[in-house]
Design a protein around this nucleic acid. Structure first.
Lengths: 246, 246
DNA sequence: CGGGTAATTGACCCGGGTCAACAGCAGTGG
DNA sequence: CCACTGCTGTTGACCCGGGTCAATTACCCG
């Protein structure tokens, strides 16, 4: 049973036993529990640590002075919410817990030790950072060009695939704790319209979504509706040439 | 006269003479000229080099199967269009020239040599990558939450500030080579609506824009209209503690 | 001067927003 | 066990920001 972070990084490269143990050690170091709907970090804070999500869902969000709010990223177990990798002086966004969250705070020294001793992990963390940015670009496309039906479909497919990559799906089902208001904030729609669009998706047999559980009866069909191209997730084991030989 | 990249990185940290010379050397290594409106890199390509823009404007864009197109980033002199820093296997987006562009292709070996010998540059490149991602998040917010008037204002302010940081403004004026169609693709609006909104901005005395030249008579007022918060550009010399001591 | 790209305008329409009421359900305390 | 509270989801009526379509009008460049 591998940790979610290990599973995630292995989408890029196979890690050695020593690599995996190092990750496990770091994951157990400084664990923090955050209640649902609480902020994990605030805009204006000085970044203190990289947060590794161990359990639960979180998000990155930004807001405008008049209260409009945009969720710009979602985090699931195995995701690093790089609090800007300790280079930037000040957070320019919030990180908030959606469900109750268990996370590991990885300090600067630990991170440096980890990367110094484990070049494959360093590479894998780079991969992780690049993929995160790539996802952010896809979100810009999503919000900028897709209509409501495509946009919500796209988000659902993305989360399903990301959850599957860390072993958190069961068949064609996965947990989906976002409220319709959250979905609205993530897609740039209103909660009312999200509600109506979800009903359309259900009517068309593309999804079932109830009690915070999402079922996708026919993934290719939903992908199609979303114009989903998974190249931006870079899940195809691209660092194979670096694989540990054990 | 410092190169745009040096100027840009100095927003983060002061570089030593040796650092600057190393950057200059790399900037002169493998220079390529691309005509306006040509692609610099294509989706599906294997990334070959990091492209450093020396002159002209370029953009990163993604498109949907039915032709809808989203410009997700703009590049000006001094910007690195990391072609995924050579870790990812395949480009998930296009890079296109807006004007004629002169760029330097920085290969893997050169990049490694540069960072190995110049730790301050390594830090500065990290800063650059983080800021790029931060800008991407702000674009998601922009397209997701701001209305047309705010959205276009925001883009204009951002580009003005970025140009100013690399010495390419003159007073309250800067070059602005985007067509209204480009602006539309970058903001998720239609060209028709961009046209009408620009007229509103002109009527309100917030901008003058003609012959590819932008003038901002009252920057604070335009910032205000855009709900612009420049924290996401991280231009405040945050790596001061690393400054070269010469 | 001709041809092509970019900007502009008008008429009309629609996806999605707004407002407001209400229903379902979980948790909480008595 | 029940009443209360508050969040989440749902629905209807109506409206508006921005899209669509199509026709002109600059403008640029060879």
């Amino acid at each position: 049973m591998l940790s979610p972070l290990t599973l995630r990084l292995q989408a890029f490269t196979k890690l050695s036993v020593a690599d995996r143990e190092a990750i496990d050690r770091v994951s157990r170091s400084s664990v923090r529990q955050v209640a649902a709907r609480q902020d994990i970090a605030r805009e204006g804070d000085r970044p203190r640590a990289v947060n590794l999500i161990l359990e639960g869902w979180a998000c990155r969000y930004k807001s405008l002075p008049d209260g409009r709010r945009q969720i710009v990223s979602l985090f699931i177990p195995g995701d690093l919410c790089d609090a800007n990798v300790l280079i930037l002086k000040e957070m320019d966004h919030y990180i908030g817990a959606i469900t109750a969250v268990r996370l590991a705070e990885i300090g600067r020294e630990q991170l440096e030790a980890l990367t110094l001793d484990h070049p494959r992990i360093t590479q894998a963390l780079w991969w992780d950072a690049l993929v995160t940015t790539s996802v952010q670009r896809e979100w810009t496309l999503n919000v900028g060009q897709r209509d409501a039906y495509e946009r919500i479909s796209h988000l659902l497919v993305e989360m399903f695939l990301r959850l599957r990559a860390v072993g958190l799906t069961t068949g064609n089902t996965c947990p989906f704790p976002l409220t319709q208001t959250d979905l609205a904030d993530a897609t740039g729609l209103t909660a009312v319209h999200v509600n109506r669009t979800l009903q359309d998706l259900r009517r068309d047999g593309l999804i079932a979504l109830e009690r915070r559980t999402l079922t996708i009866p026919d993934l290719p069909r939903l992908k199609n509706a979303a114009m989903f191209n998974d190249n931006y997730l870079h899940l195809d084991h691209e660092g194979a040439h670096l694989d540990a030989n054990d």
